[in-house]
């Protein structure tokens, strides 16, 4: 290793590094440009956006789009609701997932095969929309916040991921060693497994948070009151519905025009505002994606 530092890299390596950088830069450009475009558009006047004069930096900078968002009460109740659903939903979801995955990862757990099979079955087959709706109705969850949190809390795919993680990175020897020191299963889970599993918890949390934040379909079918709507449903309302077509012909031209104008006005600023929480979440969780948690935990 010491020597390798002094050796000049061969030409072929340098060329390939340059090529890799060029390639990655192109990808960066492809990913970053739409984001920059949307942010720039959100600060530009809507006339400039519709006439296509915005391509990189804001044209005729204005706060008008954001002002309009601030005057739109549904967006704010939706925002608050989405935060509630995301925070509560993610915590519950991760807690349930771990409580399910840990027993399944233990070889000493008797019914793990049956349970696993049942879970896989439920992952592949579902009862369909109407039975789903009837279950939620019979549980009296309709039109409550719980309808947004509970039905999707247990994601079977996440359970499998967590279970595999426990199986592969928590050696059985560790359990035996702990047992010798007088540790039972609960203590082993909370004091040894969980601290060692921060990466997988971070992943589960991120998945749960993003899917909770983006979900709208449950809200659509289970919620009947506007004050419970999450942000995504409000956004959908603003961005999707307002497409002019021959079907919306009962509307008067004033109303059509109102929709059109509102759409151009709100579109970009609303997208920016709705993306902020998820963008904030990433760097905080990313620091847990560290390797080597297991180093030195056990000596063979």
């Amino acid at each position: 290793m010491e020597k390798a530092i002094h050796i000049r890299e061969p030409w072929s390596d340098r060329v390939s590094i340059v090529l890799i950088y060029i390639f990655l830069s192109i990808i960066l450009l492809c990913v970053a440009y739409p984001l920059i475009y949307i942010v720039s558009s959100s600060f530009s006047s809507s006339a400039a956006v519709t006439s296509g004069r915005v391509w990189l930096f804001p044209v005729e900078p204005t706060w008008y789009g954001y002002q309009a968002v601030f005057q739109y009460p549904q967006i704010w109740t939706g925002y608050l609701n989405s935060i509630i659903y995301t925070v509560l939903g993610s915590i519950i979801s991760v807690a349930l997932t771990i409580m399910m995955a840990y027993p399944l990862s233990r070889k000493t757990f008797m019914s793990r095969k049956v349970l696993m099979w049942a879970l896989l079955f439920a992952m592949l087959f579902s009862g369909g929309l109407i039975p789903y709706y009837l279950v939620i109705k019979s549980l009296h969850l309709l039109d409550t916040r719980w309808a947004m949190i509970l039905p999707g809390a247990l994601n079977i795919f996440s359970i499998i991921v967590a279970k595999t993680f426990f199986q592969s990175s928590i050696p059985n020897d560790l359990y035996e060693a702990a047992q010798l020191d007088g540790c039972n299963d609960t203590k082993f889970l909370t004091r040894i497994v969980l601290p060692l599993s921060k990466p997988v918890i971070a992943v589960l949390l991120l998945w749960a948070a993003v899917s909770n934040w983006n979900s709208y379909f449950n809200a659509l079918i289970f919620l009947n009151s506007e004050h419970l709507y999450p942000l995504q449903l409000v956004l959908r309302e603003i961005l999707v519905m307002n497409n002019v077509s021959t079907n919306s012909i009962t509307l008067s031209p004033e109303q059509l025009k109102q929709f059109e104008d509102m759409k151009t006005l709100l579109k970009y600023s609303v997208i920016v505002i709705a993306s902020i929480p998820v963008l904030i979440l990433y760097p905080f969780i990313q620091k847990y994606f560290v390797k080597g948690v297991m180093v030195g935990s056990i000596k063979e």
Binding site: L129, I130, Y133, L220, I221, L223, N224, S225, E226, Y229, L233, R236, E237, V240, M241
Partner: peptide, 15 residues
């Protein structure tokens, strides 16, 4: 009120 968003009102109605 039993509200449905206009973008998907038909789905909700038939449900």
């Amino acid at each position: 009120w039993n509200i449905a968003p206009s973008s998907d009102s038909l789905t909700k109605q038939s449900l």
